[in-house]
Design a protein around this nucleic acid. Sequence first.
DNA 1: CTGTAAATGATAATCATTTTCATTTATACT
DNA 2: AGTATAAATGAAAATGATTATCATTTACAG
Lengths: 143, 143
Amino acid sequence: MRLTAKEISAALKEHGYKLTPQRRAIIKAITSNNDCLNPQGIYTRVRSQRAGIGLVTVYRTLEILTRLELICELPAGGIQRNYTLSASEHHHHLTCSGCGTVIDFTGHNLIDLENKLSRESGFIIESHMLEFFGLCQGCQKVS
Amino acid sequence: MRLTAKEISAALKEHGYKLTPQRRAIIKAITSNNDCLNPQGIYTRVRSQRAGIGLVTVYRTLEILTRLELICELPAGGIQRNYTLSASEHHHHLTCSGCGTVIDFTGHNLIDLENKLSRESGFIIESHMLEFFGLCQGCQKVS
DNA sequence: CTGTAAATGATAATCATTTTCATTTATACT
DNA sequence: AGTATAAATGAAAATGATTATCATTTACAG
């Protein structure tokens, strides 16, 4: 289940961060679409609604949200960083390389593989990342 | 099977690229260790052997090697890009977040999952990425 | 050995991200 | 509601990785 704007706001307050109009606007921008966003994209989207905000604030807020694991950074992609909303349970992503739409999926269990790798390599495994890339139906038509 | 220096050199020639001392040195640096490397790291390593090279050349060569899929860019990591040697077959990575050592592994089949996702989402899936992160035995002792 | 296109490297340019710091503001507490 | 205060904002400058420019050098085919 993807996090809601309300949940994110609550988490911020819980950790002692103030709820400013700028932060509200960023949270709204992130939660109202399910594509992935880079800092510049969020900046533009917030600006396009009447709201005043600086790019610096976007960067700072994204850093906080990442630290609290409310959003997560997506691998690869272009020059800028890409972020997507976190979810309440462990999941993976399927990202459209055309428009950036992100679909979450769960239920694929990698624990067995993780244990096997750990046993064979001697590593203590801390995390993993499973990402699929492709073209969504809309972008298939375009190309 | 990880690519050898000889194979990489051959591939470069095959594609019409000249085999300069600088390129040889970079290839040697990449193939002689199995940790992942960033541009600055390769630059330093090549310099530390008597060889003269500029950072710009490192960037250019890495770009060529990436384009020919002889090395691949690793996700996440720090500020700089990280690269690791490609291999002759499809595989995934287990990366030590301490020292950057990369272990390749194969044999985990994601085709079924890929088909299922494709069917359910309507995406045409083009690629995927499965990465594990942890601490190797050496780095476990240090920390 | 020679010609030539490709490669190199020093320098400068670009661009995302961070830092700085003066000003503004959310929030807890009268 | 008013106020104090630490946190947040934003403009401008700094940083740092990556890329472009261009004169010089070099690999290599003939």
